[in-house]
Amino acid sequence: MFIEINDVNKQYNDKENRPVDVLKDINLSVEKGQFVSILGPSGCGKSTLLSIVAGLTKTTSGEIQIDGKTITKPGKDRGMVFQQAALFPWLTVMENVTFPLKKEMKKKDAEETALKYLQMVQLGKYISHYPHELSGGMQQRVAIARALAMNPETLLMDEPFGALDEQTRTRLHGQLENIWTETKKTILFVTHSISESIKLSDRIIVMGTKPGIILQDITVDIPRPREEHKKEMLEIEDHIMKYLKKEIDKVVSEELQYANSH
């Protein structure tokens, strides 16, 4: 297996100094090139799990291997896209995307690489703009191009479209699917939206909260493009719903809030 998550536990101490389990006995294997969604209500530790894979957070126990190598710190083999684009405002779009390439490439090569990925997210015309001149959706596409520019084996996405409006999100789903088909990256995609996970992924890891555990591992084998298979998508949605009534109630109320606030 390409990504191996072995017995990962994560605890932190709360205000009264009592240990709280954020993640409990997480075991997960991911094949190379797979698009895996990690679905769960907020507080289930899904973002923490992704952060551990990124090397930004340490485990309390257990380890994660990618391609046989144990993860101890962040690395360019794993590109990360956050909920906020996290572009550097003092750099242009081009400079942002070449940021991770500065040390290993000549300027010209770095810019060529960056342009290739910016064109992939259809922003080739915006290379000399600054982030504040772009819309939220465009910023997020630059962030995706920036992560891809390092040519990582794995793409880690932490609710990357969570802060965007519905239409923009739908459009970016399509773009992400194309990018994934084109580049064959392994993608770990954290979301709290059931429909988003069904639309995009090969596999959905459903997590429960307090403590964060894996409740179910669902394979989605609906042919793409999935818009043409609405019925099958709904069946899986029902399946997840039925199986996880209690947890999903939390998800749904969260999604309602989410829909209301956007």
């Binding site: 930004l56 710190k73 940021f99």
Partner: peptide
């Protein structure tokens, strides 16, 4: 400095 900038930079090898 936003911790997000630092995290993002770290994932890019800085």
């Amino acid at each position: 400095v936003s911790p997000l900038y630092i995290k993002a930079a770290q994932t890019m090898g800085a």
